[in-house]
């Protein structure tokens, strides 16, 4: 598996419709886990880094690292250099515990080191 150099991106974690509709079904169901376990990358970055939809990518912060599949963001939704994923189990692993005296860990606008891992193993 080829591993490319890491690049600094900004990760926004947030809510999505699919997350909202699937959580009532079950937080252990396929829709929900897929939705929170996928990162959106803008098409320009996908092209530039030769990433295909479904490829595994790695996101790393000082707190931890996750390896999850990616999809292309809708056209225009994300500017280059920005990633989005639905807030949950995976995004939280990248989040620190320091709340800077507020109770709120920085959960949006995180600096993350992003790299392509390659096609999913099963593919």
């Amino acid at each position: 598996m080829e591993k490319k150099a890491e690049e600094l991106f900004i990760l926004i974690a947030g809510r999505s419709t699919r997350q909202g509709t699937s959580m009532n079904e079950s937080k252990f169901g396929k829709d929900y886990t897929e939705e929170i376990g996928t990162v959106q990358v803008c098409p320009e970055d996908m092209n530039r880094l030769a990433i295909s939809p479904g490829d595994l990518v790695r996101l790393r912060t000082g707190q931890g690292a996750i390896e999850i599949p990616c999809v292309a963001a809708r056209d225009g939704e994300l500017p280059p250099g920005m990633l989005f994923m639905a807030y949950g189990h995976y995004s939280s692993q990248l989040m620190g515990s320091d709340t800077h005296g507020t109770g709120m860990p920085s959960s949006k606008g995180l600096d993350v080191y992003f790299s392509r891992i390659g096609p999913p193993v099963s593919a």
């Binding site: 009532n24 937080k27 949950g88 515990s97 860990p105």
Partner: peptide, 23 residues
């Protein structure tokens, strides 16, 4: 499901009660 890892790790070590309609 959504706290920082350090917070989750500690919650896992202490006795706790949970109320929720869903698993």
């Amino acid at each position: 499901g959504n706290f920082s890892q350090a917070a989750r790790d500690h919650l896992g070590t202490i006795p706790y009660i949970a109320l929720d309609p869903k698993e």
